[in-house]
């Protein structure tokens, strides 16, 4: 059984760090470092990486990116984050709830609670727009790790409906639909980090994304 703590110690031993410094860094690691390699979730891994960056700064010079990258590899057991991908067909209000639940399950524990609710709400708005305006379509949800170790959640809502004729009006906030859903699209844009809308008579494709904050390596934990 390889412990994260031992793996970190191994990596540090093979660097230019003074042995005392390397030992101090390992000694001051939080208890979660006692877990098995690959046992930490992404959030715990990021937290630990933050401790390591601080340790490096305290006990040696500034953090070296290459070294941190290697430490990140050993924290995650070399596997990194396992990307997730879900495709949901939307044809009724029941599928809106399914989309909410699926998105929530993917985000829980990885994003801050408030961000979770923001993103799930945005997904809900996009899914509902499909069944209300295009009757049928598909929602694709993906979660992947970025090079800066943050997580990227993406939602793609696609339909072959009639398109959104008054998109500019909706996005300017001046439109109020009978169903009150003009707010949905505008709201989804506010709740996510970015929303790209392509619409025409042949259908609508909306891509949105939200990034988790990467571990801040410059601050104390």
């Amino acid at each position: 059984m390889a412990l994260v703590r031992d793996a970190v110690a191994d990596v540090l031993r093979n660097t230019s760090l003074v042995p005392v410094a390397a030992r101090s860094i390992v000694t001051t690691l939080p208890s979660s470092a006692g877990g098995e390699v690959g046992s930490l979730d992404v959030v715990a891994g990021h937290d630990l990486l933050r401790y390591l960056a601080v340790g490096l700064r305290v006990f040696s010079s500034a953090p070296q990116p290459a070294l941190l990258e290697e430490l990140h590899r050993c924290l995650t057991g070399g596997q990194g984050f396992k990307p997730a991908n879900r495709v949901l067909t939307v044809t009724s209000d029941h599928h809106v709830v399914t989309a909410q639940e699926t998105a929530h399950a993917m985000l829980r524990g990885l994003f801050k609670p408030t961000d979770c609710i923001r993103v799930v709400t945005a997904v809900s708005e996009l899914a509902r727009n499909i069944y209300l305006y295009a009757q049928t379509g598909e929602v694709r949800l993906t979660m992947a790790e970025e090079p800066d170790w943050s997580l990227l959640f993406q939602v793609v809502a696609q339909d072959r409906g009639p398109g959104i004729p008054n998109l500019d009006e909706i996005l300017s906030g001046s439109y109020r639909s009978k169903t009150g859903l003009g707010k949905g699209l505008l709201g989804a844009r506010t709740l996510l980090d970015g929303l790209d809308i392509k619409t025409g008579p042949g259908g609508t494709t909306i891509k949105g994304f939200k990034k988790s904050r990467p571990p801040d390596l410059s601050r104390n934990p």
Partner: peptide, 14 residues
């Protein structure tokens, strides 16, 4: 009303 939900509703412009 959950606080996260309240925050989200405000941001939704509701």
């Amino acid at each position: 009303l959950h606080p996260e939900v309240a925050v989200t509703l405000v941001e939704l412009g509701i």
